[in-house]
Amino acid sequence: MSRRDGAGVFAVALMAAPVVAGGLYSLAAAVGLAGAGANGLSAVRLVDVMRDSSTWRSIGWTFYTAGSATLLATAAALLASVQLQQSRVGRALAILPLAVPHVAAALAALLLLGQSGLLSRIAFAAGLIAQPSEFPVLVYDRPGASLIISFAWKEFPFLTLTALAVLQTAGSTLTEVARTHGADARAIFRRVTWPLLWRGLAPAVIAVFAFLIGQYEMAVLLAPSDPLPLSVLTYERVNDADLARRGEAYVLGLLALLLAAALVVVHERLREDDSGHVGAGGRNA
């Protein structure tokens, strides 16, 4: 093994160490060997979490909100990137939400979308509703409207930036080639722009989804009390009034880690398939 190899492995190990250590500690805490309320090796926490329907409701709701927001943000980013390639002002505006901290965005959503929020007051002043309580319930709501909207709004700029970068680095030459070969705008989009965008954007989309699954600040401010987002449920458990239940937070943490790892595996498989096609003559392009 060369020195360069060794340095690479060391650097990666350094990055992986916290995850490995955290995973091992969580494992110890999940089986009652570490953490507050630990009282000796037992599988009771694992069994309790797996059998608790609130765990699965929480995971389901978290996937639903994170997934909907990712879809929404991706669709918006695809549209925006194609439309905004030539507009510097448009690009600048599109990435503006990037500068807003998540917690500030969630508070803004609360003030804007609540039943006594700004939109409700405008609707009231405009005579659209007779009283604030007629305004649709958008915060602390089970459909998660404000959470999905805020998630999507916060992740949209990142995806747009990535999409624009993909188009800029790879798009122009191929588009030129296609055009000189006589392809029309629709054909160029379908056969050049779209496949490029999709392939270049996929890692970012997976990253956004994985990030949103674990997002806490926005979830705690906007989510309903039932079902609870996975991050909020985990926090509730780690601070449970019953010390013996705090270990359950680590089980939930490990579940979240597994879910994220599964996403990465799915993504890697998709990429492998994809590069196979390109290698076989670029069937998609």
């Binding site: 190990a13 992986a16 160490a17 091992l24 500690y25 110890a28 805490a29 060997l33």
Partner: peptide, 17 residues
């Protein structure tokens, strides 16, 4: 290699645990 490193730090972690 990564696993070797992971295993190497394990005793430390389990001692803490």
């Amino acid at each position: 290699r990564l696993w070797a490193i992971a295993v190497a730090i394990t005793p430390g972690v389990s001692a803490c645990a």
